[in-house]
Amino acid sequence: MALDIIAALVYGIITIIGGIIGYINASSNISLVSASICGLLLIFAAFARLQGQTWGLTLAAIVTAVLLVVFAFRLAKTRKFMPAGLMTILGMLTLAVMIHQFMALRR
């Protein structure tokens, strides 16, 4: 299994778990809904990549980039590491893996 598939799966699962924790701690419905949608899109993209579909990598990279921007803005606003800082760092790592895979596919 390629590293980009694992990265998308793990980031998707962590995103869903984070949305559930946000809902439990702050009764935030928007956290639960948005995290579930983004997490499920990442998992769906990973399974598409697992089936050999290159568009899965594009979908995963777009969702990851959107999450990265959202969490980076939240980190700048709140200055709290949890959850914004952690998700920003994980998003950067995930996106770096995906960009590396894009480059490998272009060769």
Rank of each mutant, 00 (worst) to 15 (best):
M1V: 13
A2N: 12
A2Y: 06
L3V: 09
D4P: 07
I5P: 00
I5T: 05
I6G: 01
L9K: 03
L9H: 04
L9T: 01
V10N: 00
Y11R: 01
Y11F: 15
I14M: 14
I14P: 04
I17V: 15
G19S: 04
I21C: 04
G22Q: 02
Y23C: 06
I24C: 03
A26H: 13
S27V: 02
S28F: 05
S28P: 06
N29G: 13
N29K: 14
I30F: 11
I30Q: 11
I30W: 10
L32E: 10
L32D: 11
L32P: 10
V33P: 01
V33R: 02
A35K: 00
G39W: 00
L40P: 01
L41E: 04
L41H: 05
L41N: 05
L42G: 01
L42E: 10
I43E: 03
F44K: 03
F44E: 01
F44S: 12
A45C: 08
A45T: 02
R49Y: 03
Q51W: 08
G52K: 06
Q53S: 10
Q53F: 11
T54F: 07
L57A: 09
L57I: 07
L59T: 11
L59M: 15
A60E: 06
A61Q: 06
A61N: 07
A61D: 05
I62C: 11
T64G: 03
T64H: 01
T64V: 10
A65K: 03
A65L: 14
L68C: 06
L68V: 05
L68A: 07
L68R: 03
L68W: 07
V69S: 02
V70C: 01
V70H: 01
F71K: 01
F71S: 02
A72V: 08
A72Q: 05
A72N: 02
A72I: 06
F73A: 13
F73W: 08
F73Y: 12
L75G: 00
L75I: 00
A76T: 09
A76N: 12
A76C: 09
A76S: 13
K77S: 14
T78N: 14
M82L: 14
M82F: 14
M82A: 14
A84G: 03
A84N: 11
A84M: 03
L86E: 06
I89L: 15
I89D: 05
I89C: 09
M92Y: 07
L93M: 14
T94S: 13
T94E: 06
L95Y: 06
A96M: 13
V97W: 08
V97N: 07
M98E: 15
I99W: 09
I99C: 10
H100N: 13
Q101H: 12
F102W: 14
F102C: 07
F102D: 06
M103W: 12
M103N: 13
A104I: 11
L105M: 13
L105D: 12
R107V: 10
R107T: 11
